[in-house]
Design a binder for these strands. Structure first.
Lengths: 192, 192
DNA sequence: TATTTTTGTAAGCGAATACTTACTTACATG
DNA sequence: CATGTAAGTAAGTATTCGCTTACAAAAATA
């Protein structure tokens, strides 16, 4: 189901509210104010609040998925891994308001459909990462004396914590620059 | 400010609600139901809902701080690091209902006092970890060709993601066992 | 035993919540 | 130019929210 332009505007506004005011700041009233029109107008574009949250997660997942798919793999683990995360850090530095949804801790337990949307979002990152890391292990570029899933978790966990810190610092530091250094450290750790 | 036994019971119930139903599931009504008495009775023990959340975070911080302080350091990085996390995994496997507060993403942006309580909670873990890792680098047990802060972030991020996955899996896997393996992998990565 | 303190209750407050209804306006299309 | 549709509004709905009040029983204290 493709989103219309007005729906995308609403989804972006919802992301802004979520990031600025947390899950309890995302109300229909606040959303209407952010859109500069009435509460009831929101319901011309979405059937419920839950639908808006799910649309937000799907929109983000589709955007990220599209960006990652269009990323060509060189086969060199260090190059591919750096590209992957440069892409991520750049995207979020241009779209602050979606940071809240990176792994969506705060949205958990709201509804079953929302949880599924979160899982799918995690899956997209994990799939691409697994492809790069396991290829690197096969071709002898990455240490293969440890489980691929462990390496994935270490990389993803570090990445996620970086996003958390960036948000806690109210986006005041240079995410692509600091993120890039972190990835360098990880690469040196896992290289053969 | 020490908590009375009834207050601790309420704080534990609040933790259960938060973990099971998310931030929006933590209402005075639900809390009263969980405690098997009326809503107004809650206000005999706490002045406001915010005070309950802060008490929860402080109680957790104090408990963890106390446990970590009573942990003797051997000077051997691998032993100390394993002890630190075994302690953590054991604690949370015995107190499922506090997992939500590990880094408290969902609680962020609720109020200034709550954010401060979260920061203090993060600080406790970071401080202990920094002590162990930087000592390990000084004594040549840990790679010193990378920044201590990077290593800390990698370890903490991995730990936090593990807790997230455990909760997403509704506590169905053995946290101390799987957590221990993860720490082993990290140790092998950062050892000299 | 008399009195104060602690801890509970039922009933209800105003505000905020997600959402609905009935109606209007602008505009594209036959 | 008539008509259907898309997109807005004001004014509501029922429900839930955190919290308060007035009162009762029990327990601790004088």
């Amino acid at each position: 189901m493709e989103l219309k332009t007005r729906q995308i505007e609403i989804v972006e506004a919802a992301g802004r509210l979520l990031t600025q005011k947390g899950i309890n700041g995302l109300t229909i009233k606040n959303l209407a104010k952010e859109m500069h029109f009435s509460e009831s107008a929101i319901y011309r574009h979405f059937e419920s609040k839950e639908e808006i949250i799910i649309a937000l997660l799907r929109y983000l997942a589709d955007t990220i998925d599209h960006r990652l798919r269009s990323m060509s793999l060189s086969g060199k683990t260090d190059v591919d891994l750096k590209n992957l995360f440069d892409e991520q850090f750049l995207f979020f530095s241009e779209h602050h308001h979606f940071v809240v949804a990176v792994f969506s801790d705060g949205l958990m337990e709201e509804s079953v459909s929302i949880n599924k949307a979160i899982e799918s979002l995690i899956g997209i990152m994990t799939r691409q990462l697994t492809a790069i890391v396991s290829e690197g292990q096969k071709t002898g570029q990455i240490r293969d004396d440890m489980a691929t899933e462990h390496l994935i978790q270490i990389i993803l966990g570090t990445y996620k914590l970086q996003m958390f810190k960036w948000r806690l610092a109210v986006f005041t530091f240079n995410l692509p620059a600091e993120g890039s250094q972190l990835i360098d450290t990880i690469l040196r750790l896992i290289k053969k």
